[in-house]
Simulated scan of single mutants.
Amino acid sequence: MVSEALRNLIISDDLDLGSQLSEARIASKLQVSCPPVRKAINRREMEGLLVFEPQLGSFVFFPSIQRNFPNSATRSAPWNPPPLPTKC
């Protein structure tokens, strides 16, 4: 199944994090036509392994604090560690 093969390419580091996908290259690598690759890309986007950017295409996900924790305070304020205790 093309979708599983694409997942394996992502998980096994055959596709670099943040790299742009080429349907034609993936189809050639998997020796299939482009329509099944498109369907597999859509499936992996829904799973979060791929990210679609309008007018740019699909990319392998790249972990980031903003994407993983979009509502967290780390997005708008710097982290200030608590002061170290002066006595034990």
Rank of each mutant, 00 (worst) to 15 (best):
F61C: 07
W79V: 15
Q31K: 13
P82Y: 03
D14K: 14
A40H: 04
S64R: 01
P36V: 00
A5F: 08
S3G: 11
D13G: 06
S33N: 06
I41A: 09
F59N: 10
P70R: 01
T86D: 07
R25N: 15
S22T: 00
A77E: 13
R44D: 00
L17E: 00
T86G: 06
A77K: 15
G57V: 08
A5H: 12
R67M: 10
P83S: 02
L30F: 05
F61Q: 09
Q31H: 09
G48K: 11
V37E: 02
F61V: 12
S58K: 08
R25P: 00
S72V: 10
V51L: 13
V37G: 06
L49N: 03
S76Q: 13
L49W: 04
Q55E: 13
P82T: 07
V32D: 05
I10W: 06
N80T: 14
K39Q: 15
F69E: 07
N8C: 09
P35C: 09
N80Y: 08
I41G: 05
P70A: 04
E45R: 15
L30W: 03
G18P: 02
P82K: 08
P54F: 02
I65H: 03
Q31M: 06
V32N: 07
M46A: 14
I65E: 01
N71D: 09
S33Q: 10
V51H: 12
S72Y: 10
E4K: 15
E23D: 08
M1E: 04
R43Q: 09
F59H: 11
S22E: 01
I26H: 08
N71V: 00
E45F: 04
L50W: 01
A24I: 04
M1G: 12
F69M: 05
A27E: 00
P85E: 11
R7H: 14
V2Y: 10
P70M: 01
T74Y: 15
E23M: 02
I11A: 10
G57L: 06
L9Q: 04
K29H: 13
Q31N: 12
M46C: 05
E53N: 03
C34D: 05
S22I: 00
P63M: 14
K87E: 14
G57K: 07
T86R: 06
L17M: 12
S28G: 07
R75A: 05
R75Q: 11
S76K: 14
Q31S: 15
T86S: 11
L15K: 11
P54G: 01
E47T: 10
F61G: 03
C88H: 05
F52H: 14
F59V: 09
P83D: 04
P54A: 06
T86L: 01
S19M: 05
S28I: 02
A73Y: 07
D13C: 09
A40R: 03
E47H: 11
T86F: 03
I10L: 10
P85F: 12
A77R: 15
L56T: 08
Q66T: 13
L30S: 03
V60L: 00
E45W: 03
N8P: 04
K29W: 03
